[in-house]
Design a protein around this nucleic acid. Structure first.
Lengths: 241, 241
DNA sequence: CGTACGGTTGACGAGTGTCAAGGGTAGTGG
DNA sequence: CCACTACCCTTGACACTCGTCAACCGTACG
């Protein structure tokens, strides 16, 4: 947390940001070293335990965050308690809904999560001054929109088996990015209840489909959480692509 | 209404744009009169019959458009032919996916539609020069993302009855904007098949739910297309809010 | 040792999909 | 003017997927 020690050469990029993924693939890539400097003054890194609420109707989203590690779920609830996960965010995604205070949406740490957060006003000022930042945000928003629409197909038109396979593929590509040739191996970041809420199913159906995949040899499972997929292509076939 | 009269002869605004909704509520509102001038040189207005494909894997989306009137559906298809409508666009929405040529998405006129279209390169040049335009696009994209996520809840967690009621409410608020107090009356812009693809149901289920609403007196239907809703609140209750 | 939590499995039933038949309306050609 | 076809929609009978309810297992924790 010894934040802003700018080294003589190698530029004025704050130490905190040096190795940060958000600077390479995330929105901070849009910022100049001096902007990073001023931003990092009000930035704070936090580690949050699984289950922590990051943003919600209660705490009126007073900050924006970059996700440094872990998985965040975006949840919507109906009046009677039914809920649907409408998005998963991984590092280095940007968390927060610009230009709006409410959101009717809850963001919750699905796993332990570390974030780098900034006060709303600071980001908003910087956005109005830096078109590059807005451009990055537009790109991320378009990406999220594409993902949301892809998932709508899964929710609306796929069977339970296809849904579970689609979910496993999604996690595989996001947790095991280098290994995306033939096989994959990863820990599920979500409980069965979360998976059900993401897929529009019940816990029981998710469980049954997972054991079905296990018995068919498509996946292996250890400790209910660790999954390995010997042949990703078999999963993809089942997922319906 | 007579907004941009800031100057000597207010007629720097192209005739075509004068009465255009896109200048008030759409993305063109971000443009100066001179930008509108240069844009309108390469703009073309078209009327398209219902069923026309506006953008798809085949015609590699060589243009962007503003919707002037009518309803456009955004469709995604699975390999085996199942399809899901992932969005409906009304005037004065902007149509087109910036920064990407493919899209894995088909845009099709659901009703007769009129659009104002522009060549891709012209818009992209103007976007890189005008932060206001990008800002408008960001706002529209965020709006679409919110709508997509709302719909994910409908797709994943609502029953057939709730889905159909939600759909009717959506159309009511988009087709009858002034009348949104107590009651509403409108023409459905979609066939039963389209509604089914939008709700993740079959034609038959949609039909059955509509007759159920009719028999319960929640809606009245004429010609299979014209719907009137005496008490919107009853619909909203059924929709699950 | 008891309790809480997350997960699995089974029996059953409700909600939707599937398949099939038929009605209404518009357009076309005799 | 009247078939004739095509399309959109409705309705019924039935099948099947998935949700509901309940019991049970394993692990972590006090």
């Amino acid at each position: 947390m010894d934040a802003i020690r700018k080294d003589i050469h190698n530029s004025d990029v704050p130490v905190l940001c040096k190795a940060c993924e958000a600077r390479h693939r995330g929105v901070c890539g849009a910022l100049s070293p001096s902007q990073l400097q001023s931003l990092s003054k009000s930035a704070s890194r936090k580690k949050l335990g699984s289950g922590t609420e990051l943003m919600g109707e209660s705490l009126t989203a007073s900050s924006y965050s970059n996700i440094i590690g872990g998985v965040v779920k975006l949840v919507k609830m109906l009046a009677d308690g039914r809920q649907q996960i409408v998005g998963l965010q991984f590092a280095p995604d940007f968390l927060g809904r610009p230009f709006k205070n409410e959101s009717a949406l809850t963001a919750e740490a699905a796993t332990d999560v570390s974030v780098c957060s900034f006060p709303r006003p600071v980001i908003e000022k910087m956005m109005s001054e830096s078109p590059e930042l807005e451009h990055k945000l537009l790109e991320q928003t378009l990406k999220e929109l594409d993902e949301a629409r892809d998932w709508m197909v899964t929710l609306g038109r796929k069977t339970a088996a296809e849904k579970v396979a689609s979910f496993l593929l999604l996690i595989a590509t996001n947790s095991d990015p280098e290994n995306d040739g033939e096989s994959a191996e990863f820990d599920l970041p979500l409980t069965r209840a979360d998976i059900a809420d993401f897929l529009g199913l019940t816990i029981e159906t998710v469980s049954r489909q997972l054991t079905k995949l296990r018995k068919e040899g498509v996946i292996e499972v250890r400790n209910n959480r660790h999954v390995s997929v010997p042949h990703l292509e078999r999963l993809a076939d089942i997922a319906g692509f």
